[in-house]
């Protein structure tokens, strides 16, 4: 299937949803660009004109290495980008363009419509405030609850994320909880107001494997209970593959491939995605040399395709024009000149 003129994903998906009669998605990011005032040795654009969408109740995995723009994309959804960031494009969420929100409207969006869970459970909570109070604070802010009602609701929420003896834990300070329990408490806090979208930025990276498995279980369970949509960011393909319906692979501020989990692993099309999968140690024969993607991350972007300086397939054409993200199979998008 060929598309003559490269269209944006949003347009393509628009056509799709019209064709299938589906409702508009919960989140639709359109040509989102995030730039910072140029600094020496750093690219000004950390995210370049990306478009994607998340349906209600859908889990999207975002995968990429450092500097690919995955964290900036998440912060943009929450209005938490550093003040110096310049944002272009549109973020349609539930019928509103978030990029047009006032500071006040952002504050009522954050914590109520969309909530976030961060990587470091050790530092993400206020060390001098009781866990229950920190959870209650969201309810006081958005649901107009009294502090007291908020606290008793916080105890229920701690129980719903399977924290043993939640009454006591609500009275505890963060340092009295283990890393896994803190992350559970963060999830309880994020889900307190039943947000439509949960943005999770490497939520299991700092945890041990057995605890990571517990947290992934918990997120799946809560998602099925409440139908929350999730944007799950990770550098770890395997973690993402266990929780996401669809995966978006980012490289150097661009989406390079975007497909369902099944399609992506059965038929990875972009050389970068292929490389990422092939470099996994569990993919190689023990003791043999693993496949490596040559070169390093960071540094100056090459002209044309941003992956062209590390790509085994790159030719002169790749170094001239940046490839657009196109749909090469139903709902399977890739940005590569070499893919037909």
């Amino acid at each position: 299937m060929m598309i003559a003129a490269p269209a944006s994903v949003a347009e393509i998906q628009d056509a799709h949803s019209q064709a299938s009669g589906a409702a508009t998605p919960l989140l639709r990011v359109q040509d989102l660009t995030i730039a910072f005032p140029a600094a020496v040795g750093r690219e000004a654009e950390v995210v370049s004109s990306i478009s994607y969408e998340i349906g209600a109740g859908e889990a999207l995995g975002v995968v990429g290495e450092s500097g690919c723009g995955k964290t900036m994309t998440s912060l943009a959804l929450m209005g938490l980008l550093p003040p110096a960031a310049q944002v272009d494009g549109a973020i349609w969420f539930d019928g509103r363009d978030l990029t047009k929100l006032s500071a006040r409207a952002w504050r009522s969006h954050r914590g109520r419509d969309a909530a976030m869970v961060f990587q470091e459970p050790m530092t993400a909570m206020n060390p001098v405030m009781r866990v229950g109070d920190q959870i209650a604070e969201v309810l006081v802010r958005h649901e107009g609850m009294s502090k007291r009602d908020g606290f008793s609701r916080a105890v229920q929420l701690l129980a719903s994320v399977h924290i043993p003896s939640p009454e006591r834990r609500a009275q505890d300070y963060p340092h009295q909880l283990s890393g896994g329990m803190r992350q559970r408490a963060m999830i309880a806090m994020a889900l307190a107001c039943r947000p439509k979208l949960l943005v999770a930025d490497e939520p299991t990276t700092a945890l041990d494997v057995t605890v990571q498995a517990q947290i992934l279980d918990l997120m799946l369970e809560l998602q099925e209970q409440h139908g929350t949509a999730i944007q799950f960011i990770s550098h770890n393909l395997a973690v993402v593959s266990e929780i996401a319906h669809r995966i978006m692979v980012m490289y150097s501020g661009r989406i390079v491939e975007y497909a369902s989990v099944g399609d992506l692993f059965a038929n990875p099309l972009h050389p970068y995605t292929q490389g990422l999968i092939k470099t996994l140690p569990e993919m190689g024969q023990p003791g043999s040399d693993l496949y490596t993607i040559p070169g390093t991350i960071g540094g100056k972007r090459p002209p044309g395709c941003r992956f062209s300086n590390r790509c085994p397939l790159a030719d002169a054409g790749c170094r001239q024009a940046e490839p657009a993200l196109r749909e090469v199979a139903p709902r399977h998008y890739v940005a590569c000149h070499k893919v037909n």
């Binding site: 938490l80 504050r107 009522s108 206020n126 969201v138």
Partner: peptide, 26 residues
């Protein structure tokens, strides 16, 4: 600039609330 202040922002608190309730005591 610490993580928990970012968390407080992600909850939708206003800047005065963030400063008085979260930042100042720390």
């Amino acid at each position: 600039s610490s993580d928990f202040v970012r968390t407080a922002r992600s909850k939708g608190l206003s800047e005065p609330q963030i400063i008085i309730r979260h930042a100042l005591r720390n």
